[in-house]
Amino acid sequence: METPDSEFGAAVRRALRTMPAAAHLGLRVGALTPGAAELVLAVRPEHTQHDGHVAGSVLGALADFAGGSAAGTLLPPGWTSMTMDYTVKLLAPARGDTVLARGRVVRAGRSTSVAAADVVVLDSGTETMSATALITMRNLEVG
């Protein structure tokens, strides 16, 4: 995929850094390429349920941020995207020390983009897919 913004990486990192919810979770940006984004979460106790598994709401937030970040890599300078809708399917319990959310653009449009995200948990070197999602983003010119 091609991006109209040669500084897409800085734009996506800035968007996540200035978003209070993403900052609260402690997300880090992993790989970024046009049309794809990987986010990394070091699991903390406050991300988990009473049984030690990462909460489904946290997995959903990660999928949303990853899909939105992937869509953001394809936006023109001065544009942002906001979530219109997302659906998350939880596939397996998420127990581990790191969660990776890998977003990818399914369709990039001028006003609406659709992305997908897979959320995997790393536990002692083993990767388990815990959730998958489909995310619809509204693209908006800022300023």
Rank of each mutant, 00 (worst) to 15 (best):
Glu2Arg: 11
Ala10Trp: 01
Ala11Ile: 09
Arg13Gln: 15
Arg14Thr: 11
Arg14Ser: 12
Pro20Trp: 06
Pro20Ala: 06
Ala21Arg: 09
Ala21Leu: 14
His24Ile: 01
Leu27Gln: 01
Leu27Cys: 01
Gly30Leu: 05
Leu32Tyr: 05
Leu32Ser: 06
Pro34Gly: 02
Leu39Gly: 05
Leu41Lys: 07
Ala42Gly: 10
Ala42Phe: 00
Arg44Ser: 13
His50Ser: 14
His53Ala: 08
Gly56Tyr: 10
Ser57Ala: 15
Val58Asp: 07
Leu59Lys: 11
Ala63Lys: 10
Asp64Thr: 15
Phe65Leu: 14
Phe65Asp: 12
Ala66Asn: 04
Gly68Met: 06
Gly68Phe: 06
Ala70Tyr: 11
Ala70Ile: 09
Ala71Trp: 01
Thr73Arg: 13
Thr73Tyr: 11
Thr73His: 12
Leu74Cys: 09
Pro76Cys: 00
Pro77Met: 03
Gly78Thr: 08
Thr83Phe: 05
Tyr86Leu: 13
Val88Asn: 09
Lys89Phe: 00
Leu91Pro: 09
Leu100His: 15
Arg104Asp: 06
Arg107Phe: 00
Ala115Asn: 03
Ala116Lys: 09
Ala116Arg: 13
Asp118Ser: 13
Val119Phe: 14
Val121Gln: 00
Leu122Ile: 10
Asp123Ala: 15
Thr126Trp: 00
Glu127Met: 07
Thr128Met: 04
Thr128Ser: 10
Ser130His: 12
Ser130Asn: 15
Ala131Pro: 12
Thr132Ala: 14
Ile135Gln: 04
Arg138Gly: 03
Asn139Met: 06
Glu141Gly: 12
Gly143Ala: 14
